[in-house]
């Protein structure tokens, strides 16, 4: 008996086959790569064209003396030095920050309204529509209407106040009342949007949580504080972030209602000042530096908010 080595299996997979397979794979992958590339290219090109390029251009423009018409002349950080010494920049920044007072007030009112509108009250669809109308209305048109409403003599606001024996101020001409007047208008304009978002959030809170809390003896206020408020916090966070960004860009209503910056410059916002510098006073380079500083300030505030939100984050298992 002889022991022979087992026959080696005759492989049918030749080198040529492997080559062809690799080629086919490459072809297939190339196609996939092309498609993947195309899909990725759209946002990347968009990002480059609409974000990175304008941003880089703005950064460069902020380092130049440029009137927006002719050539740019590089002047280093001069615009930034001038900016920090410009008292009107700080006044406009202060006015802009002051306008933010309206954000918590608006959110509190929106949440209250959302809770009221989430109940089965008669005519709630009507009220939801009414509160949303200002959101879809033209801001310019609204600003003109409110300008009339705030008229010291004939305005609706003072006529309404006079019913209660209150002699209203000359809102837009009074240094102390011009900013609050604009805040009231901004709250009114944004109320519908915040209310709709809060409404969705309030209605998404599981009923079981309220029932369990009620069984444990929690009252209305405690249920609101410990269930509703935490459950709608993602919406609150979203609204605070977007309202601060939006509020920092307040312009249209100021330009229409107080075109010269209000009594004693009390209503001039930073974006209004930037616009004036850029388009009226031909200081596009300087205006760009202010716009970038505003952008950085908003970014810092947003980062702080993100961090604070993260610290207080929780989830229900």
């Amino acid at each position: 008996m002889s022991i022979t080595a087992p026959p080696t299996p005759q492989s049918t997979w030749t080198k040529e086959d492997a080559k062809a397979s690799r080629k086919a794979n490459r072809k297939l992958h190339r196609k996939e790569y092309i498609w993947a590339g195309a899909f990725m290219a759209a946002p990347v090109i968009g990002w480059l064209a609409f974000l990175l390029f304008p941003l880089a251009f703005s950064v460069y423009a902020s380092l130049t003396n440029w009137n927006g018409l002719g050539n740019m002349v590089f002047i280093g950080l001069d615009n930034y030095v001038m900016l920090f010494q410009d008292p009107y920049f700080w006044r406009a920044l202060w006015n802009t920050v002051f306008y933010m007072i309206g954000i918590p007030i608006g959110l509190a009112l929106s949440l209250g309204l959302a809770m009221a509108l989430s109940r089965r009250i008669p005519g709630r669809t009507f009220f939801r529509t009414v509160y949303y109308i200002p959101v879809i209305s033209s801001l310019a048109a609204i600003a003109i209407l409110w300008q009339w409403a705030y008229n010291g003599d004939f305005g609706l606001v003072n006529q309404f106040l006079s019913i209660f024996g209150i002699e209203g101020p000359n809102w837009l001409m009074d240094e102390n009342w011009a900013k609050p007047a604009l805040i009231i208008m901004a709250i009114w304009k944004g109320l519908g949007y915040s209310t709709i978002l809060y409404l969705a959030a309030v209605q998404a809170v599981p009923r079981s949580l309220y029932e369990a809390a009620a069984l444990d003896g929690a009252g209305g206020w405690r249920r609101f504080r410990t269930i509703t408020l935490p459950m709608v916090r993602p919406v609150t966070f979203f609204l605070v972030v977007t309202n601060i960004i939006g509020g920092s860009m307040i312009f249209t209503e100021i330009n229409i209602m107080t075109p010269t910056g209000g009594p004693n410059w009390s209503t001039a916002s930073l974006v209004w000042y930037i616009w004036n510098k850029a388009f009226k006073n031909l200081q596009m380079g300087y205006a760009t530096s202010m716009a970038l500083v505003l952008g950085i300030l908003v970014l810092i505030v947003t980062v702080i908010q993100f961090r604070m939100n993260k610290r207080n984050d929780f989830s229900i298992e």
């Binding site: 609409f50 974000l51 033209s138 310019a140 048109a141 960004i245 939006g246 312009f251 249209t252 980062v303």
Partner: peptide
């Protein structure tokens, strides 16, 4: 950063009268 940039971009693209 993305939130701020996105919001600024959307706001810049939006039309609100003036």
């Amino acid at each position: 950063a993305v939130t701020v940039a996105g919001a600024l971009l959307l706001a810049a693209c939006s039309s609100d009268g003036s």
